[in-house]
């Protein structure tokens, strides 16, 4: 069994938010919900300052605090390392939202249209695709009001890709949307248990770190540091 992971090279990321948009377009997240975001950090002292984009989403922790606190078992770690949510078991207590130290979970209050005038073409299209639950995963393609959502590494793409004989991380149709769309090639996806995969090599390169390693959450997302300014 693979252990899916990602590396994000902060030295390559330009903060264009293409990943944010690709995530929305692929997962049809409701109004007000984004499974990933780019935190715009700052560094340096005036006048030598810079903005540092920091892509942030569910870190797919092996020891996920959200899984520990979930009272219903709706959130669980899959055998392939992906932290998933079974909406049909979620009661919407939001205990996981409190427990996640990365602010990566969002409670879906309602499924209101993006704009007051009614649904956009995008939402109508999303509704068509999202009518029926994915039997295998109970995951994206559809959304529910009153439950908590998060990034699931586009698990539906991974599963349908593998079923079609594709390799996640190599073939675009089997790889998370944010990775495929990244114009800078800052994101690499693949099997962390395979030492020869591109993601494993990047994750074990010098300087690679996991976000807030001190929390002991053991994420499956690794970051590579931005070069220091002179």
């Amino acid at each position: 069994m693979a252990r899916w992971g990602m590396t994000i090279d902060l030295d390559l990321c330009i903060g264009c938010e293409a990943c944010t948009v690709a995530c929305k377009a692929n997962n049809f997240t409701p109004s007000g919900v984004s499974w990933l975001r780019i935190v715009k950090d700052e560094a340096g002292q005036f006048p030598n300052v810079t903005r540092l984009p920091f892509p942030l989403q569910c870190q797919q922790c092996a020891k996920a605090p959200c899984v520990d606190v979930c009272p219903t078992g709706a959130t669980y770690v899959r055998d392939d390392g992906i932290v998933a949510v079974n909406y049909d078991k979620c009661v919407g207590c939001q205990y996981c939202v409190l427990a996640c130290p990365y602010g990566a979970r969002t409670f879906v209050e309602d499924l209101a249209p993006y704009y007051p005038a009614g649904k956009t073409e995008f939402e109508l299209f999303a509704g068509l695709l999202g009518g029926e639950p994915d039997a295998a995963t109970g995951l994206p393609g559809r959304h529910q009001a009153g439950v908590v959502e998060k990034c699931v590494f586009c698990v539906q793409k991974i599963e349908s890709g593998i079923a079609a004989g594709l390799t996640p991380g190599v073939d675009a149709d089997a790889t998370p949307a944010c990775v495929v769309t990244c114009i800078a090639g800052a994101r690499v996806f693949g099997d962390l248990d395979d030492p020869d995969s591109a993601v494993s090599r990047k994750a074990s390169s010098s300087g690679a770190f996991r976000f807030h390693e001190e929390y002991g959450t053991e994420p499956n997302i690794y970051y590579l540091p931005a070069r220091q300014l002179a």
């Binding site: 520990d68 606190v69 979930c70 009272p71 219903t72 078992g73 709706a74 049909d88 078991k89 979620c90 009661v91 919407g92 207590c93 939001q94 205990y95 409670f107 879906v108 209050e109 529910q144 009001a145 009153g146 439950v147 908590v148």
Partner: peptide, 24 residues
């Protein structure tokens, strides 16, 4: 207060299934 407590009340049964969670 549960997000799905009124719309999907049968899910409350699941609250009894994971006593490793402090809430359960």
């Amino acid at each position: 207060d549960l997000g799905a407590g009124l719309t999907h009340p049968w899910r409350i049964v699941w609250l009894y299934t994971h006593p490793t969670s402090m809430m359960s």
